[in-house]
Amino acid sequence: MTDQQPQKRPYYVIVAQVAAELNKTLASCRQINLTASNAQAASTRIGNSAMGFKVLTHFIDELASETQKAARDINYLARQASTLSTYIARSQMALKQFAHARQKLGTHTAQPAMKRAEEQTREKFHSQRSEFNGMIEQIQSNLDDLKKTLRTANALASVCRIEACRVDKQNQDTFIGVADKVDEVAEAIRQRVDTAVTLFTQTEEKEAA
């Protein structure tokens, strides 16, 4: 208690934090949606020379929706995992009590009913844990996919900058503005996703849980 060791957080806390990080990306996704629809309006105004750009804004819009869906799915999964993890903690508490009770019995043999209860709890604990590990793997692979999607965002922003060369100076700024915004928001989301990934990897409790 005296020296400040980095605390090992229970797994349900970590997964809840992951859910919260993903939840924060949803607002960023809405920003991209908004930017895309503003850009779409601008390209309609500009006319023919902005046709390529208009198609592009459609992709940006789609990307934002896709990212939003992915973030929602991961958020949901992480909240489920957090709840499951509290059940695991409860099973673990029960197992500890059973062990304690067995110890108290000393040389007396445990009743079959007690053995059965302990056995059932242990089975439940193992199945909960393997379900939980499955969920964590799912979340991690979804996070990886999301990172790949974010790379597409940067590609789209680059194309956006190229398209900007096709219109006059005044409208160029609108296009470049969109590209910058997409890059910026993608970066913000990537940071949140990285935080989420780090939250997982920092703890090695998964096996020990």
Binding site: Y12, A20, K24, R79, S85, T86
Partner: peptide
């Protein structure tokens, strides 16, 4: 209620 409470709190403040 613990899990939903925890999920909502970490959205709002660091634990």
């Amino acid at each position: 209620l613990f899990a939903p409470m925890l999920a909502n709190i970490v959205k709002m403040i660091p634990l």
